[in-house]
Design a protein around this nucleic acid. Structure first.
Lengths: 115, 115
DNA sequence: TCATTGTATAAGCATATCCTTATACACACA
DNA sequence: TGTGTGTATAAGGATATGCTTATACAATGA
């Protein structure tokens, strides 16, 4: 059963602006499949650590992403309490999965695991 | 039956960036319900005619919107041949309808009709 | 053909965006 | 407590964005 809750245009535009950047859209798609820490993103993107950190901060400030510190690492994931949680999943649904990217990291021993 | 065609991340980010502006997102929502000409948008938004025109050009350049001249007027609408046509409809589905805005125009005799 | 109306383009400006490098902060562990 | 590793913040620069005003182009109709 669909909820069909109405979205605010201005808030939605802000969310779409955040997703309207290739780096952030890719991050969001990755986080929709797995939580991920900053250093993993740094390995996945050809970009400096501060650049990654700044993208994550924008996503966190908007409330669509949450962070969880585990020891030295901070893991980011989609925030299930955000009012845009299911909307975002709809928007990214048909983007290609990036699981294989994380598997490459695992193969290179670069995957962070805190179990 | 869902198609579930895979979307390209970079192209999708570009589309979302276009939608990630309050003015353009509103325009798109309006166009999803009715075609609309430039002067109508000018009446609907508190913004100059060139500003409206420039937003429409971006949307047209990306292929997600098409134009049709009818006499003096140029009508814009969602482009059904765009590969993002159904995607966009999904993305804007739960935004509030703006039909009442067009009805206000009609009441003010500002609605353009070429029938 | 000329004036009017609708639309597009050009140029310029203020601000936003996205990156960089340098540096600070947080945690782990010897 | 000191050092290494992970992450955040600060500052600054290049480019992008979104508006403005001025002007050009397109169609209509007297």
């Amino acid at each position: 059963m669909q909820m069909n809750e109405k979205l605010d245009i201005e808030m939605t535009a802000n969310v779409l602006k955040l997703l309207g950047d290739k780096t952030r859209l890719t991050m969001i798609k990755i986080m929709s499949e797995h939580e991920c820490c900053v250093c993993e993103f740094v390995d996945l993107f050809d970009m400096s650590q501060p650049a990654i950190s700044q993208h994550l901060r924008k996503l966190k400030d908007s409330g669509i992403v949450k962070e969880a510190r585990r020891g030295q690492w901070i893991f980011y994931s989609l925030n299930p309490t955000s009012s845009y949680f299911s909307y975002i999943q709809t928007v990214i649904k048909d983007l290609p999965s990036l699981n294989f990217k994380l598997e490459e990291l695992t193969a290179q021993g670069k995957r962070i695991c805190c179990d």
